[in-house]
Simulated scan of single mutants.
Amino acid sequence: MRKTAWILLIIMIILGIVFLGNRASQDAILSKDIHLALEQEEKQIDLTTMTSFEWDAVEVFGPYTTNEIIEDSMDIRFRGDNGGIDVLEDRFLLVFADEKNAVKTVVLSRKYGDFLIKDNKILLVE
Rank of each mutant, 00 (worst) to 15 (best):
R2V: 12
R2A: 10
K3Q: 06
K3E: 14
T4K: 15
A5N: 10
W6K: 11
I7W: 06
I11Q: 04
I11Y: 09
M12D: 07
I14M: 07
I14A: 12
V18N: 07
F19Q: 09
F19Y: 13
N22C: 08
S25W: 06
L36Q: 14
A37D: 12
E39C: 01
Q40D: 13
E41I: 01
E41Y: 04
E41P: 08
K43C: 04
Q44C: 02
D46M: 00
D46L: 01
L47A: 02
T49N: 12
T49M: 09
T51I: 08
S52D: 15
E54Q: 14
W55E: 08
W55T: 07
V60G: 06
F61H: 02
P63S: 14
P63F: 07
P63K: 15
T65I: 10
T65Y: 11
T66D: 12
T66Q: 10
N67M: 13
N67Y: 14
E71C: 08
M74T: 02
I76A: 06
I76R: 07
R77K: 15
G80A: 10
G80H: 08
D81G: 08
D81S: 09
G83Q: 12
G83A: 08
G84V: 01
D86C: 03
L88V: 10
L88H: 13
L88W: 04
R91Y: 13
F92W: 14
F92V: 06
F96P: 03
F96T: 03
A97R: 02
D98W: 06
A102G: 15
V103H: 05
K104T: 01
T105Y: 06
L108E: 03
L116Q: 12
I117Q: 03
D119A: 11
D119G: 08
N120R: 02
K121E: 10
I122T: 08
L123G: 00
L123W: 00
